[in-house]
Design a protein around this nucleic acid. Structure first.
Lengths: 341, 341
DNA sequence: CTGAAAGCGCTTACAG
DNA sequence: CTGAAAGCGCTTACAG
């Protein structure tokens, strides 16, 4: 309600003076500073952000962009984890966080989102930008907006989880357990860069033992639990000898687990199942799911930290965060090995 | 980049004309409209939101406020559900969503949040406002900002889940099953209004059978799984005859379940456990948890819809959303009845 | 150390 | 139907 002008009048100085005192410009009599601050508190003055934004070009708002694909967004607990990390960092820096969830269809990006980028409302943007072929950050980058990318699109500074290493970890673990007959449950690689990298990691670890990833049967789903269930069914019916299922998405692993149990298989005795993401449910389900944790909160926090570096004109190195294998109860040596032992 | 002025020049009209054409003011020659629109697309003009906000007083940003208590915020899946509902509605109306998660300690509200409210950056606010004694919306209300409250604080228009009815549903179900020796796991009522109402509902249903809720043993935790575990331990050690545990928070129910299983009890055969919230894990855990679903996405969506009504100066009635009992596998008739049968 | 003044890019009565 | 002009509330060179 109160404006700079009222504060100035009350303090008996000019509005320029008030503005400068408030923005901590040096060289001010302790006296005028006092007068100003008194008026400020007396009036409960709070700068109008829109005005400040217009004249300074800074809004103190950063855009956090999670694309809306397959409705996965709001059902994915990792999103909340990343948000938490981002929020913590923004909070510390006194920045506000504008959440944008543009729809993306056939490579077409939401016009509303594009307008937001063009609107000058954002000082910077952090995006989960991993859809092959359509970069959410391209426009922002083009317009010189500082941005950091959590993912693989080659736009500006980026941070991502080491999906390749995660894939390797997962495959090595299963291989060490003695599995050779393994089925893959994934989603089409066109949907998410991360998938290709997880597969690549899987392949590298397999290759060390002379196995070809391409020889393993694979079914693709759509992130949903149900699709995991169906993929498991297809895989197991066509390949009854499978001793393990590698699911590149936890939710799909949950569906696979469901299918296995419905068809009377003991997990992990008859069939091992591993996932990727370490969502909360994975911890609680029986058997608890062995999976890969990609440290989503850190991912978010670091992304925000990098953006704030960008604000100070230092260009941070892109970073890759190592994942962690979380060993729980859903995988064990295959039956054949067990009976031998 | 392009400004109104450039568009005006390009179109050969005044900036006022451009502005009015863009804001769909009626009465314009089809011809000038054409000229203007051509210039707009040619220049890729996008209004500067800060400028528009400053002169119109509207920012098209609505604040979504989830207080940060006990770290529960980002670990609570319901938050994501509500956000989804709010986002869907905002998206449709072309509004942006600013996420604010003020810290609240001893009734003290985050100064940064308060400043945000005072900053003029928000056209309206939706808050999860259910901490007894400290209203997150009081200041907004005072300043005439349209706001809707998801919860119980008596600030302005509100929408909430019918916690009382939910409590009744839960108690009736257990009573119908034949339970009489029940233990309560809750959190201190000072933490959340909803808890008192759930308890009230529990009490009403109990009273119908002549039972006094106050006679049932109760332990309070802090939302966490671990506290649920500990509450169950305390309750069961002190009252070995308990046949059922009513947990007012799903996560705590999960902890209670864990304790029961660790101590060799069969759920629901030896002990029934019910929760409240219907978080995703409740669906997957074994035994699947019988619980109350409070329709969080609708809560969010309706809250946003109400805010948009407020924007058009219609004052919507406050609303109460009925909950739903989700019957799964964690509750059954008590053993005594079973053996009788 | 302090102030007058221009300017940020729009919207909105008010004239014409 | 269209335009000139004031004004939204700040920041920032530029003088003094």
């Amino acid at each position: 309600m109160a404006t700079l002008q009222q504060v100035a009048r009350q303090a008996g100085v000019s509005i320029a003076t008030v503005s400068k005192v408030l923005s901590n410009t040096p060289y001010f009599t302790e006296e005028t500073r006092q007068k100003v601050m008194q008026a400020v508190t007396a009036l409960g003055y709070q700068p109008n952000l829109a005005a400040r934004a217009l004249s300074s070009g800074k809004t103190h708002i950063i855009g956090v962009v999670f694309p809306y694909i397959y409705d996965a967004l709001f059902t994915d607990p990792l999103v909340l984890d990343m948000l938490q990390g981002i929020e913590a960092e923004c909070y510390q820096h006194g920045y506000n966080l504008l959440l944008s969830t543009p729809r993306v269809q056939n490579g077409q990006i939401d016009e509303g989102y594009l307008n937001l980028i063009r609107s000058g409302y954002l000082d910077g943007v952090i995006a989960l930008d991993s859809i092959p072929g359509t970069s959410l950050l391209a426009l922002a980058q083009e317009r010189g907006l500082p941005c950091v990318n959590i993912g693989y699109n080659p736009t500006g500074v980026s941070i991502r989880s080491d999906d390749e290493q995660g894939g390797r970890l997962l495959m090595q673990y299963l291989l060490d357990l003695g599995h050779r007959q393994m089925g893959l449950i994934a989603v089409p690689e066109a949907l998410h860069f991360a998938i290709s990298h997880r597969l690549k990691g899987l392949g590298e670890a397999a290759a060390e033992l002379g196995l070809q990833l391409a020889d393993l049967p694979r079914q693709d789903g759509d992130f949903s639990l149900k699709s995991g269930h169906d993929c498991a069914a297809a895989l197991l019916e066509a390949n009854p000898k499978l001793t393990a299922l590698i699911c590149l998405i936890d939710r799909m692993a949950l569906g696979a687990l469901q299918y296995a149990q419905q068809t009377g298989r003991q997990v992990p005795e008859d069939l091992s199942i591993v996932g990727y993401d370490d969502i909360p449910t994975s911890h609680f389900i029986t058997p608890a799911l062995t999976t890969i944790n990609q440290k989503a909160p850190q991912l978010g926090q670091m992304a925000a930290a990098m953006l704030f570096q960008l604000f100070t004109d230092v260009i941070p190195d892109s970073a890759v965060l190592a994942t962690e294998l979380v060993i729980r109860q859903s995988a064990a040596p295959p039956n054949s090995l067990r009976s031998v032992a």
